[in-house]
Design a protein around this nucleic acid. Structure first.
Length: 323
DNA sequence: AGGTCGGCCTGGCAGC
DNA sequence: TGCTGCCAGGCCGACC
């Protein structure tokens, strides 16, 4: 699934390739992509415009366009952005087929399937938005309030920007009974964390995914910030995780799926050394479902926090009578 | 109002 | 072999 590290990997690849290029034409092949706007509204807004910036906010990739508008793209579950050079592929095909004695022997990268939109660039290359499950989204936003409101209402702190401090995290979590796992997936509080990196962050922080978010103390928040940043950086260092559909802009998979510390490791031993585990339960990775999401964790070393009482100094007799 | 859950969507796979 | 049905999950809207 494209989460922050996957989207950022694509952004870093596309930025030097797209900035300064003109999108000569745009073709939306699936009207779901631009809902509720009709496809031609997006096509017209983009066509003929030069790309001025390639940015990211949460899991959104944003193409800044000449004239001030922004094309915001969300890959959701199975979306990919692929930059292809049709001319180069044909040349490579020809050279390879000659050396091997026939065109049938050559197998190039498969032609992308499930193409939902094509953006033709002025250098002959084409940017493809592919998306098997058709959850992806493309929206054009005006500069100013429209752009600001769109993201302000949806997205919270950027976890790698430095604004995510333990103190900020504690404030965001204060009073929340929702499990830490659900809390981390809420984009309007912290943007960019998905199912994979939420599990990885909680394992790194040694926090149980079912702990109520509001039960954290400062030392837990410090560990969780380190866990979030560490997990996301690891994803970036490995070009993202390709569990099933994700490919980078060049069509290559990432390798983060080979580096998972806990995600998808159900039944396997916890990677923490025995010295950091208690006598029981067994340090074997478990899978549970938390608010509809597969969640992997070590029941031994990931501490389940208790909900903090609202008032700590009230005598038990008075608290009982207060209701 | 915070929290949970169903719907969107399709390929892959388990089970018959 | 072929069919059915379930599962995966980001995000929004509906509901409690």
């Amino acid at each position: 699934m494209p989460e922050l590290p996957e989207v950022e990997t694509v952004r870093r690849q596309l930025e030097p390739e797209l900035v300064g290029k003109r999108i000569e034409s745009a073709t939306v092949l699936d009207e779901r992509l631009t809902r509720p706007e009709p496809p031609d509204a997006v096509e017209r807004a983009v066509a003929g415009r030069e790309v001025t910036a390639v940015a990211r906010r949460g899991k959104y990739l944003m193409l800044g366009l000449e004239g001030g508008r922004t094309l915001a793209l969300h890959l959701r579950m199975t979306g990919n952005l692929l930059l292809r050079d049709p001319a180069q592929r044909e040349t490579a095909n020809l050279m390879k087929s000659e050396s091997l004695g026939g065109p049938r022997l050559y197998e190039s990268k498969p032609e992308p399937s499930h193409v939902r939109a094509r953006f033709e660039l002025d250098d002959g290359r084409v940017l493809l938005f592919t998306d098997v499950r058709r959850f992806g989204q493309a929206v054009v936003l005006d500069a100013g309030d429209e752009l600001d409101d769109f993201f302000a209402s949806r997205l919270g702190l950027e976890p790698l920007s430095g604004e995510l401090t333990p103190q900020r995290l504690l404030e965001l979590a204060a009073g929340r009974k929702a499990p830490l796992k659900s809390f981390l997936l809420t984009q309007s509080r912290i943007a960019g964390i998905g199912n994979i990196y939420a599990d990885e962050a909680l394992w790194r922080a040694r926090l149980h995914p079912l702990s109520p978010a509001g039960s954290m103390k400062i030392e837990h928040a410090e560990r969780l910030v380190d866990g979030i940043v560490g997990a996301l950086r690891a994803g970036l260092d490995h070009g993202g995780a390709s569990i099933d559909d994700y490919l980078d802009a060049r069509g290559d998979p990432g390798s983060m799926q080979d580096e998972f510390l806990v995600h998808t490791r159900e039944g396997e031993p916890c990677l923490r050394p025995a010295s950091e585990h208690r006598p029981s339960p067994p340090p074997v990775i478990q899978r549970i479902v938390v608010t509809g999401r597969s969640t992997y964790f070590c029941p031994n070393c990931q501490v389940r926090l208790r909900r903090r009482p609202r008032r700590s100094r009230r005598p038990a007799t008075r608290r009982a009578g207060a209701r």
